[in-house]
Design a protein around this nucleic acid. Structure first.
Length: 294
DNA sequence: CTATAAACCTGCTGGC
DNA sequence: TGCCAGCAGGTTTATA
């Protein structure tokens, strides 16, 4: 689900909804969602933690707690964070979580909720994830920031410290394709498959071009375009291709604006040539064979 | 070191 | 209608 704009949307929601709240309980039916420690230990250690802040680190969500501790959540492909009131219900098949949010969810039971933090205002922060790839990590700030996922994170795509000159230096040393380079979180943080395709289409660069072949002006255009597209997607509250939803269960609006992503066979928005699909680094890449020459 | 593949999971889609 | 291969927003780990 989540790339930079989707994660930012979630973080903005969470700042309004859970900052200053206390976590009073923890429930999970998928212990693997929690890294490092058992759910029972996390439950004990997190009780009565006050939420001080919520931030985005690349595609990770950092929830800062009191007593110098923090939660780090990565939603991976199909993870969702939702805030609301749920009810646990025991059935023959196990625990089910009922979800009163109306709208995009097909029914009132969200069978994919696997972790729930109960808050002191009667609401719950729930992690729902159909594919169970999402992970929650907990510990002292020192521990969280020592995690490879954070330590090795490149500069954020929207971070002002990432200047055209620095971006050029990074891009020009990479031998991989420009698309795989853009999607590598240790190079630039936040760009995933959807936005990488749209960004490259917008500057007419073929996704398979080796990164080091881009010249200075192309790299500058790349950075400017990346920021423009990511900011537009944040304004529209993300892309809902598949099942992405915000913390209230509402879809994002960028899906209608997609430039090439998942438009295989459809006409290029510039020249009407049918969009092509190829595979790069095990991921699909979409491009216009006429606008984006190798 | 690099490049590719597999692993982690479930549900949906399309072809036969 | 039914089955099954292939595919999906991401990242880490294994293999060559």
């Amino acid at each position: 689900m989540p790339e930079l704009p989707e994660v930012q949307t979630i973080v903005d929601d969470l700042r309004r909804k859970v900052v200053h709240r206390k976590i009073i309980d923890l429930w999970t039916d998928w212990p693997k969602s929690i890294k490092g420690i058992t759910p029972a230990i996390l439950k004990k250690r997190i009780r009565d933690s006050k939420i001080l802040d919520v931030k985005r680190l690349g595609k990770n969500i950092l929830i800062t707690l009191d007593r110098d501790r923090a939660l780090l959540i990565h939603q991976k492909m199909t993870g969702h964070l939702m805030v609301g009131r749920w009810f646990l219900k025991k059935t023959r098949a196990g625990w089910l979580v009922t979800n009163p949010i109306r709208g995009p969810f097909k029914d009132r039971v969200n069978q994919y909720v696997h972790v729930i933090f109960s808050l002191d205002n009667g609401k719950m922060l729930a992690l729902s994830d159909m594919r169970k790839f999402a992970r929650v990590d907990f510990g002292e700030s020192k521990y969280i920031f020592s995690l490879p996922a954070i330590r090795k994170l490149g500069l954020d795509a929207l971070d002002g410290h990432l200047t055209p000159a620095i971006f050029e230096k990074i891009i020009r040393t990479r031998r991989k394709s420009i698309k795989q380079t853009l999607m590598d979180p240790t190079v630039v943080a936040g760009i995933g498959n959807i936005y990488a395709d749209d960004i490259l289409w917008s500057i007419k660069v073929h996704p398979a071009r080796p990164a080091y072949t881009l010249d200075r002006s192309e790299i500058k255009k790349l950075l400017i375009s990346a920021r423009k597209i990511l900011k537009k997607a944040i304004r529209l509250r993300g892309t809902s291709v598949g099942d992405y939803r915000d913390t209230s269960g509402r879809p994002g609006g960028y899906g209608r604006e997609l430039l090439v992503y998942r438009r295989t066979g459809e006409p290029c928005r510039r020249c009407r040539t049918p969009i092509q699909r190829m595979v790069l680094g095990q991921r699909p890449a979409h491009f216009c064979p006429r606008c984006q020459k190798l």
